[in-house]
Amino acid sequence: MPDRHADRLLEAASRIILGKEHELRLALACLIARGHLLVEDVPGVGKTTLAHVFARLLGLQFQRIQFTSDLLPADIVGVSIFDRETGSFRFHPGPLFAQLILADEINRATPKTQSALLEAMEERQVTADGRTLALPSPFFVIATQNPANQIGTFPLPESQLDRFLMRIHLGYPARAAERALLMGEDRRRLLERQQPVLSIDELRALQHAAQDVTVADALIDYVQALLAATRTDASLAAGLSPRAGLALIAAARAWALIDGRDHVLPEDVQAVFAHVAGHRLHLAGDGRNVPQAALLRLLQSVALH
């Protein structure tokens, strides 16, 4: 039962990251839908731990890349170095060659470096010295981003944001969860002790199963109505693209699978909508991100028949 796998994973993860079941579930859905995740929040709320948890529980090779303003594309992709013994150039893979990448504070890097990462995310391969090298599979990027108004950031352009399937906020933990966190064992140590609960093959099986989740005509109608609503809303700079529609359906499928269903309900779409659409929509005028309330209002403006 693939859905039991998901439950097992979520259960183990929530023992380490307390009080964030919903966010963990979204992150897992993103992973199952073969998308990449953007986590946007202030430092110290557990963004890094989230990445660690997934790497550990799934037994994935893990690399963390701290993005800084002087980071160069070669620093993440890798470089070719002349090897005197063989008399030829040898490619030294960069940190990008891992199954789970934590790209920390991605908006601190220059656009050039950002785009190197984002292209690799999209293509799942890198080209260096005229050779094309496939990235490992599965390949999952969790990028973190500080709120854009902090000093020394290069905000990701809209076209790059589109490469992330979802954007989530972790937020401060609830009072009880925070208390348990403060009183409990150190998260790192807890993590080190944790054994993988899912093999890579089991993860692949989940990813496959998600693609087989039924999307009925009625649901397509609903998704189209949602897309149309974003396109006709005068307060938005532009509506959602067809690619965003595909992303919405992929995320909803994964969400339905985690829920143990073989078909997507409108509720699944509604659950992921704010996270799939949030970073793709901008307000007309000042181009700010769309607030959550506006996304909710948008959802409620589209009737289900």
């Binding site: 409108p266 959802l299 403006s301």
Partner: peptide, 9 residues
């Protein structure tokens, strides 16, 4: 039922 409300909710 709210117009946007799905069957499960």
């Amino acid at each position: 039922r709210a117009p946007w409300e799905g069957p499960r909710d």
